[in-house]
Amino acid sequence: MRREIPLIITFVCGITMIVQFFIPHEPFGSMKSYFQQSYMIIAAFAMILGICNLTKLHVNKIRYKRPHWGYSIVLLAGLAGMTIPGLFVGAIKEGGIFDFLFKNVHVPMQSTMFSLLAFFVASASYRAFRARTLDAALLLVAGFIVMLGRAPIGDAMTSFLPEGGQMSDVANWIMAVPNTAGQRAIMMGAGLGVVATSLRVILGIERSYLGGD
């Protein structure tokens, strides 16, 4: 029964969600919002589990002086530093300690991580654009045209060409035709994959997410 009950719940919920998509009449009409709200409540309680897991892991790391345990102190200090003001000292209202820490510590750190992307894009592009094979050479040429077409210098270099044949026009064509066609093909395949996976899960054929075959 330990395996059967989750499978029955999955089946009932899955079929209900399919039915509510086609039948707007009550009680199906409001099922979607009901399930979404229920999921939000479960996720909120599960957050406690997540925080307990995180705390336990790092407390043990400090207690047994495992490698890099110093980072765990920083993590727990950060956790306490945000949680205590958020819960007990002025809550999350504007101008409070939590708000200050969020705007002046959390957001800049997020931006720092995001800005790393610029450097990673450069290093990844360097590797991708080495024309060792035909595919890589095509990628290099297409990337070169699109980059030039997106900058004013591209059109300046091809200003002698007639309208429609300039660098920005070619770049737009690459983005609108081959790129869009490829993306749509992937999306259609993925969409069918989602339907097939959902059917497998609803019918109990795919059970590995429950921990078994």
């Binding site: 992937i186 999306m187 994959g193 097939a196 795919e206």
Partner: peptide
């Protein structure tokens, strides 16, 4: 790529 993720299982 795409559907291959869903086929992996």
């Amino acid at each position: 790529i795409g559907e291959e993720l869903f086929a992996a299982g």
